[in-house]
Simulated assay, not measured.
Amino acid sequence: MSSTALIDASLRARIISEPESILEDAEVMRALVAANERSMGANIVDMRGIAMERLEARLDRLEETHRSVIAAAYENLAGTNQVHRAILRMLDPVEFETFLDDLDGEVAAILRVDAIRLVLESAQAEQDPAVERLGGVLRVVEPGFVRRHVSARAGEEAVRPVTLRQIDAGEPRIYGDRAAELRSEACLRLDLGAGRLPGLLLMGAEDPHQFSPQHGTDLLTFFAGVFERAMRRWLA
């Protein structure tokens, strides 16, 4: 080894006094390993260097997975808090008209959806004046509409309590003037109790990625369960 110093004396002294600063810097270590490989020549295979590269690649993948898991956990927590706030708001009203107004007002704002519609099947589906006075949230439809609407784009009879899908536009009969703006939809099937026809709670969003079949439905299933119980109270 040459006794001639090839680097600045102060830098050399610092490296000797704090070698851990070199070991903890990944870029510096990679540069040192690469320099070592070049000094050995092209005919020598550095197995230790290859092992280090593989370990670094695995560490990078683990760190990326770790970040993804943390991000998903925060997203799930935020979604849970969002649904809980919406449920508390939904349970506040003491009058049915206020309950409906809040659905497409405060509740929709909390859930960050652009439209909410409550669809109820009835043997007498004509929209009477009493229903019209309840605002634009409630829609009364003929028996069988719920199943047809949920399975219309799925191509099969849907039996899941919650269906998430992307759409070209909402159903004008349901969403009215907002229909053309909607690009994704959540369909929450409602069991309103023995002797009653099924219902449907629809959430429409302008964002085509807000509701997708790849998304989980646990929180919306819970929301639908609470909504069913609230509706049974109003219909009692």
Score class of each variant (00 low, 15 high):
190 L>H: 03
175 Y>H: 15
25 D>K: 06
219 L>V: 01
198 P>W: 08
110 I>M: 09
139 R>V: 05
188 L>P: 02
10 S>K: 14
198 P>G: 09
99 F>C: 05
160 R>K: 10
141 V>W: 01
60 D>H: 08
96 F>V: 01
122 S>Y: 01
188 L>H: 04
222 F>E: 07
231 M>A: 00
205 A>N: 10
155 G>R: 07
205 A>D: 14
36 N>Y: 14
5 A>R: 14
95 E>Q: 09
218 D>F: 12
187 C>Q: 14
138 L>F: 03
103 L>G: 02
227 F>V: 09
167 I>F: 09
53 E>V: 02
8 D>L: 11
65 T>F: 06
117 R>H: 08
59 L>S: 13
96 F>E: 00
15 I>N: 04
224 A>F: 07
190 L>V: 01
224 A>G: 10
82 Q>H: 10
81 N>F: 06
221 T>M: 09
13 A>C: 05
64 E>V: 07
5 A>T: 13
92 D>L: 14
201 L>M: 10
160 R>M: 10
173 R>N: 06
163 T>G: 06
82 Q>P: 00
134 L>Q: 05
52 M>C: 05
193 G>I: 01
104 D>F: 03
93 P>V: 09
132 E>K: 10
201 L>W: 04
175 Y>C: 08
38 R>S: 15
221 T>E: 15
191 D>M: 03
169 A>R: 13
227 F>H: 02
67 R>E: 15
108 A>K: 01
68 S>F: 03
168 D>S: 13
71 A>R: 12
69 V>D: 06
10 S>Q: 14
83 V>R: 02
223 F>Y: 11
214 Q>G: 10
181 E>R: 10
172 P>W: 05
37 E>C: 06
142 E>N: 05
146 V>P: 01
191 D>Y: 04
184 S>M: 08
68 S>T: 13
163 T>A: 07
181 E>T: 09
174 I>V: 15
205 A>T: 03
111 L>S: 04
202 L>F: 05
228 E>H: 01
54 R>Y: 13
63 E>N: 15
156 E>H: 13
152 A>K: 12
137 V>E: 01
110 I>E: 07
137 V>A: 02
233 R>Y: 03
74 Y>E: 15
132 E>L: 14
47 M>P: 00
105 G>L: 05
197 L>T: 04
217 T>Y: 00
